Amino acid sequence: MQPPVHLIDETWIDALPATVSAVVADPANWQRWWPYLTLTVTRDRGVKGMQFAAAPAPGSGWPALTGTVEIWLEPFKTGVILHHFLRLEPAGGQPLTARAARRWTREAGWHAKQVFWRLKDELEAGR
Rank of each mutant, 00 (worst) to 15 (best):
G67D: 06
A22M: 08
I8N: 14
A64M: 02
S60Q: 01
Q31V: 14
T19C: 08
P56M: 00
D44M: 12
L73E: 06
T40G: 05
L65C: 03
E10A: 12
V115D: 05
R45E: 15
D14I: 13
H83W: 10
K77E: 12
M50A: 15
A25D: 08
D9H: 09
E74C: 06
A28W: 03
S60T: 04
V69T: 04
A54P: 03
D121C: 10
W30C: 08
D26H: 00
G109H: 09
W33N: 01
R87C: 06
P17L: 12
T66Q: 15
Q31N: 10
P27H: 13
A112D: 11
W62V: 00
P4M: 05
A55E: 13
G46H: 10
E122Y: 07
D14H: 14
E89Y: 06
A101T: 03
L65Y: 00
V41D: 07
Q31I: 10
P4D: 15
W62T: 00
W72M: 11
L16P: 13
K113I: 11
W34T: 13
G46T: 13
D121Y: 11
F52N: 06
R45S: 11
D14F: 13
L88H: 02
L88Q: 12
V5H: 01
Q2F: 12
R32G: 09
G59R: 01
Q94H: 14
I81K: 14
Q114V: 13
L65W: 00
P4I: 04
A64Q: 08
R118W: 11
G93M: 04
R127L: 12
T66G: 14
W33K: 02
